[in-house]
């Protein structure tokens, strides 16, 4: 396993800057999640580390050595593609054996057989080994794609939304399984997702990308509690952080235009009056949709709340985050 260092890496496709001066150090054994909307440069970043794209400028180093001159094969990384990319002319077994049969590894037949059995067991695809790769469901294909990465023991795993096609239960199982495999192997893993639960539960570090730039890199907790900008604050949190004019409540620092309020940072029972517009019972919790001076606001309350649409409640912010109009964070007292 190895440390990966990106040093002001940039990549453009025509006029579009896909990745813009990204510097990031992925420590050995870390589980790094890249967050950002479509087009933020997550996949391009993975592809540059894998060697499928060449950066226009900057450097990529794996285990202390620049790999820019290396072919993807020589970099010894494994990648799970978003589109699975299983070899359609091969069976599941042959797909899993493919990396081990490569001229770089040339594993023995017994070794290949043993690794396939291990991986198939972990991913619950043992009964599908002799199926053609095209005769699988989306979820099975995705597990085979993960399996194809796991059979090798590469320096680095790259995964591009590997759990996106699984149903909720399987996804929860796989999340735990992936995390377990990663910590058992001590593997370094770079992971792209939209799913905040995946980010929060699996990541040791989260990198947030915006229009090709890395806007914040830190532990999931740090990203959640101490976002550098409104953009970062909106990437994590379900329901999303509420954005209100800073002047709605007293105590805003100078220069603050917007106030960011996480749903759990709204104290009910004191403060300003808000009208309940909708109550969503989710079973374990209840979401209250409020209107405060015409501004929509979502907060959480206990599962058996007596509140109903049309009621009025008093709300008060607790530990709000303040931002300038451009979205940069303004730290209170700083």
């Amino acid at each position: 396993m190895a440390e990966v260092v990106l040093n002001s890496v940039s990549k453009s496709f025509g006029d579009a800057k896909a990745v813009d001066g990204v510097s990031m150090t992925i420590p050995d054994g870390a589980f790094v999640v890249l967050l950002g909307p479509t087009g933020a440069g997550k996949t391009t970043t993975l592809r540059m580390i894998a060697g499928l794209e060449r950066p226009d400028s900057g450097d990529v180093a794996i285990a202390g050595r620049s790999v820019l001159g290396d072919t993807p094969a020589r970099r010894n990384v494994a990648m799970v593609f978003q589109q699975y990319s299983l070899y359609p002319h091969l069976t599941v077994r042959e797909n899993l054996a493919f990396p081990l049969r490569s001229p770089l590894i040339k594993a023995s037949a017994e070794h290949i057989e043993r690794r396939i059995a291990e991986v198939a067991g972990v991913l619950q695809i043992a009964h599908k080994l002799d199926n053609r790769a095209t005769a699988l469901s989306g979820g099975e294909m995705q597990r085979v794609a993960i399996g194809r990465a796991l059979v090798r023991k590469p320096q680095l795993f790259l995964m591009d939304e590997p759990l996106s096609s699984l149903d909720a239960k399987l996804r929860a199982d796989m999340r735990i399984e992936l995390k377990r495999i990663q910590s058992d192997l001590g593997a370094t893993l770079l992971y792209v997702t939209h799913d905040q639960i995946e980010a929060m539960t699996m990541a040791t570090h989260v990198g947030v990308l915006d229009k090709g730039r890395l806007v914040q890199f830190g532990s999931p907790r740090e990203i959640y509690e101490n976002p550098a900008s409104l953009y970062v604050a909106t990437r994590l949190g379900q329901p999303r952080i509420n954005t209100l004019p800073a002047g709605l409540f007293a105590g805003a620092p100078a220069g603050a235009d917007l106030m960011g309020l996480r749903p759990e940072h709204i104290r009910i029972g004191e403060g300003r009056e808000a009208k309940v517009t909708r109550v969503e019972h989710l079973g374990d919790q209840t979401r209250l949709h409020l209107a405060l001076d015409g501004h929509p606001l979502v907060t959480l309350t206990d599962a058996h709340t007596p509140l109903a649409t049309g009621d009025t409640v008093a709300v008060r912010p607790e530990n709000p985050l303040y931002f300038a109009a451009a979205g940069t964070r303004i730290i209170q007292g700083a």
Partner: peptide, 13 residues
């Protein structure tokens, strides 16, 4: 082209 990319990463020229 993803198939070849997968093969390139899987250790093939």
């Amino acid at each position: 082209v993803e198939y070849e990319e997968a093969a390139l990463i899987d250790g093939y020229t």
